[in-house]
Design a protein around this nucleic acid. Structure first.
Length: 548
RNA sequence: GCCCCGGUAGCUCAGUGGACAGAGCGUCGGCCUUCUAAGCCGGUGGUCGGAGGUUCGAAUCCUCCCCGGGGCGCCA
């Protein structure tokens, strides 16, 4: 069981509420109130219970407070009824000290394993045509998908990362045609690919000018995929599997899908093509499975691909899609349903677009004409840490403006360095304390410490106590950006603690050095873990002089 | 026309039923004999797009409308 003192407190409140009202009740909330005056935690339990018990909320709060006071004698200093019926809880220093002890004992696992039910999850993301370099847009997908996978993994799920390679179809043909054209010193077709890499490939592949277009496409796709993979690895994104669309065609999996759909009477011929009745699943029109020229559409391949996913027996599949693919959602859910996938087990989060800004101006990154910013260029410019952090900072369903001048800035203005600096600062303190003192501190009886908690220490402890719930929220809501927000306030709280409380030499001000070292250790672990979930490094040292 | 995502401080955005709405950047003013000033403290700043509704309570849920972005192919 994951160590989470706040969850235990919440459970105690829920239990007391159950005792008062009898039976199952709406689960009461336990949250950090907006003002210190409102206690360390507050619960709306009384307001939820009031209608059930047909009593005024404040009266219920009084009773609940009394009951909690008895049951949690050592935990709660006092309780107060406030406002419309909130019950504000003031925890004891004793409870906070033992909470720290719990965190420290949990070591690197603190905050992990919080998922209520461990699932086998497949996260599919990026999944671009292997027709060119990774763009910044795909970079956002990569950062999101990978970070989500890291979070789900830490929360206790069994996660696989997969890249679906669209190495088949008309886009590939266009690539082949474009390369052949370049090899002959001609312009690629209007709807072909015009980037400089096309010319490079044309030069790299022997006899490209004379090659068969399809063969050329296959050959170059392999080369492009290698560089795509290299870029993603550089971005600290590692896929467990690259799943080839071509392999589905070669194994005749699309034909099998067609047969299956025909058996279920969900496929029908019309105008020389074969269609699927996606309208039966709420789509606004039926979709073509096989074109009148006998070729299968990407949709049929997608169905075959998802059939394969289902056969692999995951509990859940998450497909990260781009905003331009949102129209696919309904038909993919339809496909999932008819293939026997359980409702709600296929999720299709939609990534909104990313724009690069430079001094308030939008940077052109149109893919047409081959003038677009690649992920490699972005990394060269601002570094992996800043790139990942900035791409993750905003919710996936909001359009993102990435300010290059701010992201590039190796200065105090850059939020990613603020977090790394907090980590480096703790590392510095622990170095100064010495490894023996640190080892002793983590082994010490922290719960029994005589440390009198400074307000900043209380605030920091309570922030650290939010970590397990924060991981769970980020995992359940597929929201890595929440981690960036949390780490920022954590770093702020640590900085306040650093300002107000002396760690090394605590005895000089009557404090317990071991206890304070343990707080540093706990904070450092959460910061390091949080940064890791974002794919950002946690440096041991940072110096301003490093900046040019 | 239909579908998706936004509309919260000057800018970029957190905040999916709780108490007088937050952060970063910007701006103004202060702080380096200190466990790292890549830091800290203070000031400035908001009709939460609009109108109704649900609720003890709404930025948050529902309906309608306005504005911005994206999508609506026998391309992927």
């Amino acid at each position: 069981m994951a160590i989470d003192p706040v969850a235990e407190l919440r459970a105690a409140v829920a239990e007391a509420a159950g005792t008062l009202a009898g039976g199952e009740q709406r689960l009461p909330g336990l949250e950090r109130p907006p003002k210190p005056d409102f206690g360390d935690y507050s619960t709306n339990a009384a307001m939820l219970l009031a209608p059930v018990m047909s009593e005024p909320p404040r009266g219920v709060a009084e009773k609940l407070g009394e009951l909690l006071g008895e049951r949690l004698a050592g935990v709660l200093e006092r309780v107060e009824v406030a406002g419309p019926g909130f019950l504000n809880l003031f925890v004891s220093d004793e409870w906070l000290r033992s909470a720290l002890a719990g965190m420290v004992a949990a070591e690197d696992g603190y905050g992990g394993g919080v998922a209520s039910e461990a699932e086998r999850v497949l996260v599919e993301f990026v999944s671009a045509n292997p027709t060119g370099p990774v763009t910044v847009a795909s970079g956002r997908h990569a950062a999101y998908g990978d970070s989500l996978a890291r979070i789900l993994d830490f929360a206790g799920h069994d996660v696989e990362r997969e890249f679906y390679v669209n190495d088949y179809g008309s886009q590939m043909r266009r690539l082949g045609e474009s390369i052949k054209a370049r090899a002959r010193g001609e312009e690629p077709p209007t709807d072909g690919y015009h980037g400089g890499y096309v010319t490079e490939l044309a030069e790299k592949i022997d006899g490209a000018a004379e090659s068969d277009v399809d063969e050329l496409a296959t050959q170059s796709a392999t080369l492009i995929l290698e560089s795509v993979e290299a870029t993603l690895e550089r971005f600290r994104v590692h896929f467990d599997r690259f799943f080839s669309e071509r392999s589905l065609h070669e194994a005749d999996k699309l034909r099998a899908v067609l047969t299956l759909l025909e058996e279920k009477e969900l496929a029908y011929p019309s105008e020389g093509a074969v269609w699927m009745r996606t309208t039966e699943y709420g789509d606004d029109k039926d979709r073509v499975l096989m074109r009148s020229n006998g070729e299968m559409t990407y949709f049929t391949a997608d169905i075959a691909y998802h059939r394969d996913k289902l056969e692999r027996g995951y509990d859940r599949a998450i497909d990260v899609l781009g905003a331009d693919h949102h129209g696919h959602v309904t038909r993919m859910l339809a496909a999932w349903d008819l293939l026997g996938g359980e409702g709600g087990t296929l999720e299709l989060p939609i990534m909104q677009i990313v724009s690069l800004m430079e001094g308030g101006q939008r940077v052109q990154m149109s893919k047409r004409g081959g003038e677009f910013v690649t992920l490699d260029e972005l990394i060269d410019d601002i570094g992996v840490d800043a790139a990942r952090f900035f791409l993750l900072q905003r919710s996936h369903d909001t359009a993102l403006d990435l300010d290059l001048s701010l992201a590039r800035d190796r200065s105090q203005d850059n939020p990613v360095y603020y977090l790394q600096y907090a980590h480096a600062r703790i590392a510095s303190i622990l170095r100064k304390a010495g490894s023996e003192a640190v080892d002793a501190a983590t082994a010490a009886d922290l719960a029994g410490s005589a440390e009198h908690l400074h307000a900043s220490a209380c605030a920091l402890l309570k922030r650290l106590l939010e970590w397990p719930a924060e991981v769970l929220e980020a995992a359940d809501r597929r929201a890595p950006h929440r981690i960036t927000v949390y780490l920022h306030v954590l770093a702020q709280d640590f900085t306040a603690f650093y300002r107000d409380v002396k760690v090394v030499g605590a005895a000089e001000e009557g404090g317990d050095e071991a206890f304070r070292i343990a707080m540093c250790v706990a904070t450092r672990r959460v910061l390091a873990r949080g940064l890791d979930l974002l794919g950002v490094e946690a440096p041991e040292e940072m110096h301003r002089d490093d900046a040019a």
